[in-house]
Design a binder for these strands. Structure first.
Lengths: 171, 171
DNA sequence: CAGGATCCTTTTCGATACTG
DNA sequence: CAGTATCGAAAAGGATCCTG
């Protein structure tokens, strides 16, 4: 195994620079409400925090795609692989295992002669799917803006490379 | 914000070869209408697709944290670094550069004697922030379920490791 | 303080071969 | 078909040094 399933220790830093603990339960999505005099963050971003770990996993490239793709009906292994362009068999297997372990997808094995395994979202996974979808929707809506921003950034950078004093060293 | 709801409308997906309607595993998600004979997916998942590329970036571990943290007020480089536990200077720089290039955060340099650089969300970045927040909120809400699912998975796996015939290869 | 450059370790990922 | 196991390439990431 290249990645143990039960590994917990060994990667922790002793730098616990957490001056203020996270706010209690209750997510506050109110924007621009910097009323608190503290430097408090509304959610824990420490490495040893569960949320960080989970966020890390569901924000994973392949996990995101799998969840987004598994809308409601179940898909077979090969179907998923066909849908997600560029994923290797290995990565799909690993991703599905992780999602299954996290209780987000269910794995159903049919004991037929040609093996058949169906993957579907669990009820928990379905709730996540909604959020993932909004992320995908956002990307679709704003992709042109991002592409434009990139072009502008690159153009400005290239321009500054010309007139940058002390930067160029041509004879 | 124009982000809107989390619940995506009825999306169209491709038809799977609907197998036996009875799932023995008991996984029963809400039945979804799948009477589309096309192999059409509602969003492009090809590698060369823009959405894939953008999704890849904003689904990045550090990018997600930076955006989630930059709620509305601007933060300095060191402040961000202090907030995000575990990030290195190199990674923070790279992440901020990427986000700036994508037009999601703005970088303001104050030409003071001790250099001061402020990072803040752009209007575009703010719209993404809302979505990111819902993802964070989801994780906070369901973290206990995920932890429980993991424990159950690991326990079941460990149990099967005992009685798994053909698995152990004792001499 | 902010960040560029460099070196090195760790992790990720894909290709391949094999099994049930 | 649906995986598992292994190996090597590649990318990500961290530590350190240095500059304006």
């Amino acid at each position: 195994m290249e990645e143990g399933t039960l590994k917990s220790p060994g990667h922790m830093r002793d730098t616990v620079t957490a001056p203020a603990p996270a706010a209690p339960a209750g997510e506050d999505t109110a924007d621009c409400v910097a009323d608190y005099p503290y430097d408090v963050k509304q959610w824990d971003v420490r490495e040893d925090c569960e949320v960080r770990q989970i966020l890390d996993r569901i924000a994973d490239k392949w996990s995101l795609l799998v969840i987004a793709l598994l809308d409601c009906e179940s898909l077979r292994f090969t179907e998923l692989r066909r849908e997600i362009d560029g994923i290797s068999q290995r990565m799909l297997t690993r991703t599905l295992r992780h999602l299954e372990r996290d209780g987000l997808v269910s794995r159903t094995v049919h004991p037929t002669v040609p093996p058949r395994v169906d993957y579907a979202l669990t009820p928990l996974g379905s709730t996540l799917h909604a959020t993932i979808q909004s992320l995908v929707a956002w990307t679709e809506r704003h992709q042109s803006e991002i592409v434009a921003a990139r072009a502008a950034y690159d153009a400005r950078e290239a321009r500054e490379a010309y007139g940058a004093p002390g930067k160029e060293h041509e004879g």
